[in-house]
Simulated scan of single mutants.
Amino acid sequence: MAAAATPGGLHEEALRRKERLKALRERTGAPRQNKDDGAPEVKQLRRDSEEEEAIKHKELKLRNYTPADDELKDRVVPPAKPASVEDKVKDQLEAAKPEPIIEEVDLANLAPRKPDWDLKRDVAKKLEKLEKRTQRAIAELIRERLRGQEESLASAVDSAKQDGSDSD
């Protein structure tokens, strides 16, 4: 490596490296490179054939140039008509308008639940039983009052009969 530090040593080192690369390519069977540009010959052939095809298939289009030659006048592209900016802006504004979301969303589902909704849900069965008992108790009280009124009515009728029989 000490010899590589001198200018002549660098050149020798480069030559050795080229020889090693050449030997490696020969062992692996890689395509040979062209000495002129250093690119493989296969790639150069492909590029040449592609260029020839491109030249054959290219058609001359004249957009900004008006030729004086009659043969080229048929290749002039007619001037493009600019699109109306107002129409494009209107289309973009219409596309940007949001669709009404209120129709799609049920507002009842969006309303927040009360903080005690789960307690009410858990107590609902017990409340049903208590409601039935309450109704029975109210009915019993009404029956008792009616019995009391019947007794007082019966006693009033009896007292009226007694008063009436005394006056006869």
Score class of each variant (00 low, 15 high):
161 K>L: 15
97 K>L: 14
126 K>T: 13
24 L>M: 10
128 E>D: 13
149 Q>A: 15
46 R>L: 15
90 K>H: 05
12 E>K: 12
127 L>E: 12
6 T>Q: 07
130 L>K: 05
27 R>V: 06
160 A>C: 10
116 D>R: 09
132 K>Q: 03
72 L>F: 07
166 D>T: 13
93 L>A: 15
110 L>R: 11
136 R>A: 10
29 G>L: 00
55 I>D: 11
115 P>G: 10
164 G>H: 08
9 G>T: 01
15 L>N: 01
7 P>Q: 02
37 D>V: 07
108 A>E: 08
96 A>K: 01
135 Q>I: 14
71 E>V: 15
163 D>R: 12
25 R>D: 01
45 L>A: 15
126 K>P: 01
66 T>F: 11
116 D>C: 07
55 I>M: 08
129 K>Q: 07
10 L>Q: 13
77 V>S: 01
13 E>H: 12
13 E>D: 12
134 T>N: 09
15 L>S: 02
72 L>K: 02
6 T>G: 04
115 P>H: 05
99 E>T: 14
26 E>H: 03
65 Y>A: 02
111 A>H: 03
142 I>S: 15
24 L>F: 00
10 L>W: 05
163 D>I: 13
84 S>N: 15
152 S>L: 15
1 M>H: 10
102 I>K: 08
42 V>F: 09
61 K>H: 06
111 A>Y: 07
2 A>Q: 09
138 I>V: 14
35 K>E: 10
113 R>M: 11
18 K>E: 01
125 K>F: 14
130 L>C: 02
80 A>G: 03
88 K>C: 09
16 R>H: 10
156 A>L: 11
74 D>Y: 03
39 A>W: 00
64 N>V: 03
133 R>Q: 14
136 R>D: 12
120 K>T: 04
145 R>W: 03
138 I>K: 08
61 K>D: 01
114 K>E: 04
129 K>R: 08
9 G>L: 01
52 E>G: 08
95 A>N: 08
137 A>S: 02
118 D>V: 14
14 A>F: 07
133 R>H: 03
155 S>F: 14
167 S>Q: 06
82 P>A: 06
130 L>Y: 03
12 E>Q: 14
14 A>I: 06
135 Q>C: 05
19 E>Q: 05
67 P>V: 00
41 E>F: 03
97 K>E: 07
43 K>Y: 10
126 K>F: 14
146 L>M: 12
128 E>P: 00
5 A>T: 09
54 A>V: 10
111 A>L: 12
65 Y>L: 09
39 A>N: 06
100 P>N: 13
4 A>G: 06
6 T>K: 07
132 K>W: 02
121 R>K: 15
85 V>C: 09
87 D>C: 11
47 R>L: 15
49 S>H: 06
14 A>V: 11
119 L>W: 06
160 A>L: 13
9 G>Q: 02
132 K>E: 07
118 D>L: 14
127 L>F: 06
146 L>Q: 11
